[in-house]
């Protein structure tokens, strides 16, 4: 399902002295099956934006088209529940949403709400618990006996169990240690490719955004400041610095090499291997000359 956001505007506490414009003039199109990252400082409107994509927040002005669902300011979309079946959100610290006695019951909570037969829901749970890296024997255990990282995996399984075609991830690795971070991002990347999901990642990690995204949006004060593919976004380090955002380390490295060796290097270097290759080309060429 393609997503198309047009002139979206949202203000909190409208009509009270606490009114605050959280989003303004957002135009964004996310084609089906792409990986979209959203970057920005805390309070830039990222979370507000993604909550519009499954009707948790209603636009104050503008519209959101998702497949054949249309959400418009001032109108009620009656099929919100049907929309939410298609759009799964993994919220920040999703482990806080666990509530059932057993892990299995928690994972099938979403599917059952959307009318999935219980047998099928359980099958999904059995498959997903392994996919998120836990043993099937965990299904009968209480989610509250797990470590923080394991709880997060269970919560993620609970969202995936709804089989959404659009998966929204709001800083899914916040607070995890490096190994946990790598594993969780690896899982989402695999799912994105294998299941053909549309993935929307809200993140502070420039490295993740650069590595996985087809497109990146940078938000600032409720609006879109920059938008394009990784190469385009990270080509202009000055624009990012002006927004006090970092450039991925690989890109910083390339820029330093270019400066020191007075050479031009390929720009779309977003992995360690590519960075090492760039260093090697410099060293080898210098040796030959």
């Amino acid at each position: 399902m393609d997503i198309s956001v047009k002139e979206l505007e949202h203000s909190y506490n409208r009509g009270t002295p606490f009114e605050r414009n959280a989003l303004k003039d957002i135009n964004l199109s996310i084609p089906s099956g792409t990986f979209q990252s959203i970057i920005g400082h805390t309070g830039s409107g990222k979370s507000t934006l993604i909550q519009h994509l499954n009707g948790l927040l209603k636009p104050t002005a503008g519209s959101i088209q998702i497949g054949d669902f249309l959400i418009r300011a001032g109108e009620k979309e009656k099929r919100l529940k049907a929309l939410r079946k298609h759009v799964g959100i993994v919220f920040q610290y999703p482990e806080h949403q666990l509530f059932e006695e057993t892990i299995e019951k928690d994972i099938i909570f979403g599917p059952l709400n959307f009318g999935v037969p219980i047998d099928e829901a359980k099958q999904r749970a059995a498959k997903l618990i392994k996919q998120v890296g836990l043993d099937e024997s965990y299904l009968e255990r209480s989610p509250f006996d797990l470590s923080g990282g394991q709880m997060r995996r269970v919560a993620i399984a609970g969202v995936l169990a709804m089989k959404p075609s659009i998966l929204i991830l709001d800083e899914p690795t916040a607070g995890l240690d490096p190994r946990g971070r790598r594993e969780i991002m690896g899982l989402f990347h695999r799912l994105h490719q294998e299941e053909g999901l549309t993935t929307i990642l809200v993140t502070h990690s420039m490295e993740d955004a650069a590595r996985y995204s087809d497109n990146i949006v940078i938000m600032e004060k409720g609006g879109i400041a920059l938008q394009g593919n990784a190469e385009h976004i990270f080509a202009d380090s000055d624009a990012l610095k002006a927004l006090s955002l970092d450039v991925p380390e690989t890109v910083q490295f390339i820029h330093r090499l270019e400066e020191r060796f007075n050479r031009t290097l390929p720009q779309s270097v977003f992995t360690l291997d590519a960075a090492v290759d760039a260093a090697l080309t410099i060293l080898q060429k210098e040796e030959r000359s």
């Binding site: 240690d177 490096p178 190994r179 790598r182 380390e249 690989t250 490295f253 360690l272 291997d273 960075a275 090492v276 260093a279 090697l280 060293l283």
Partner: peptide, 15 residues
């Protein structure tokens, strides 16, 4: 033990 080396060290090791 599950820790990530800083990027410059990773590059250095690969080289």
């Amino acid at each position: 033990i599950g820790l990530d080396l800083p990027f410059p060290l990773q590059v250095q090791r690969a080289l």
